[in-house]
């Protein structure tokens, strides 16, 4: 029993130990090799930069978070609607799927210059890039959830005179919800990528833009500090969607609940 408890405590401590160990190793490596901060700044230097630039960093982080969320919300609304259309109608599905796949195949960085020509440098390119890059997984997941209703369920309801709309409302949409919430985790991460890329190239604000300027100044510690800020922001947004997913679709995670 004692060994078991120790093992569990070790498991609980492992994430902290590994994370701290990672930074300690990094610090040692930089100090021992005497690497220049222009190449790889030590964690202590990055921490210093984080503190020194805490004002602009948090300001720009908030801005980036807003851009990401705005694009993400548009992607959710659009993705839900398009996903439902795709899942409900085989014609729409067959017709638009190649287009969607083709569109999704375009690296979204390549769209940014066009967005700049259309909307100029500002807040629109980051929001739109976040949207464009993140709606696809939502569409695919919602459509899959709707299209995979068990034929027997459909038969039971259709034999009672249920309309297509009845079946989608009563079965399709609730059934698609775990797929939908699952896709949000992917989508928020992608939206974040999109907004930062667009900020880097086509904005006067946001962490992406801050990095573009730091890069021009060869301020490598600030670049790394910005990376840390991005990581924190990304984890927060991912965790938020994961919590929402768990709350909304507990019935779909029943196997985990049963084993817990």
């Amino acid at each position: 029993m004692h060994a078991k408890r120790r093992r569990r405590a070790l498991l609980a401590a492992a994430p902290w130990m590994f994370t701290i160990g990672f930074f300690v190793l990094w610090e040692i490596l930089v100090r021992v090799t005497g690497m220049s901060t222009f190449v790889l700044p030590a964690p202590s230097v990055i921490a210093e930069a984080l503190w020194q630039f805490r004002g602009p960093l948090s300001l720009h982080s908030f801005h980036t978070a807003w851009m990401t969320l705005a694009g993400f919300v548009i992607a959710v609304v659009f993705g839900l609607l398009l996903g439902m259309a795709l899942g409900a109608s085989r014609l729409v599905h067959a017709g638009s799927y190649p287009l969607l796949v083709g569109f999704n195949a375009i690296p979204k960085v390549a769209v940014v210059p066009i967005l700049v020509i259309w909307f100029g440098v500002g807040w629109l390119p980051p929001v739109l890039t976040a949207f464009l890059i993140s709606f696809f997984p939502i569409v695919v997941n919602v459509a899959t959830g709707l299209a995979t209703i068990e034929p027997e369920t459909e038969d039971v309801l259709r034999a009672l005179g249920a309309s297509k709309r009845d079946i989608i409302v009563k079965v399709g949409i609730p059934r698609a919800m775990p797929y939908f919430f699952g896709s949000l985790k992917v989508a928020i991460t992608l939206a974040f990528v999109g907004s930062v890329i667009a900020e880097y190239n086509a904005s006067n604000f946001g962490v992406g833009n801050l990095m573009a300027r730091a890069s021009a100044d060869f301020n490598v510690p600030l670049l790394f500090a910005a990376l840390i800020a991005l990581a924190v922001l990304g984890v927060i947004m991912y965790a938020a969607t994961a919590i929402v997913e768990k709350r909304m679709t507990g019935w779909a995670q029943r196997s985990q609940m049963a084993s817990a």
Partner: peptide
């Protein structure tokens, strides 16, 4: 059209899990 006066049960109970 679907008869509406019928009830159906299958080998698979197909209950909605939510």
């Amino acid at each position: 059209k679907p008869v509406k006066l019928a009830g159906m049960a299958f080998q698979n109970p197909v209950m909605l899990p939510w």
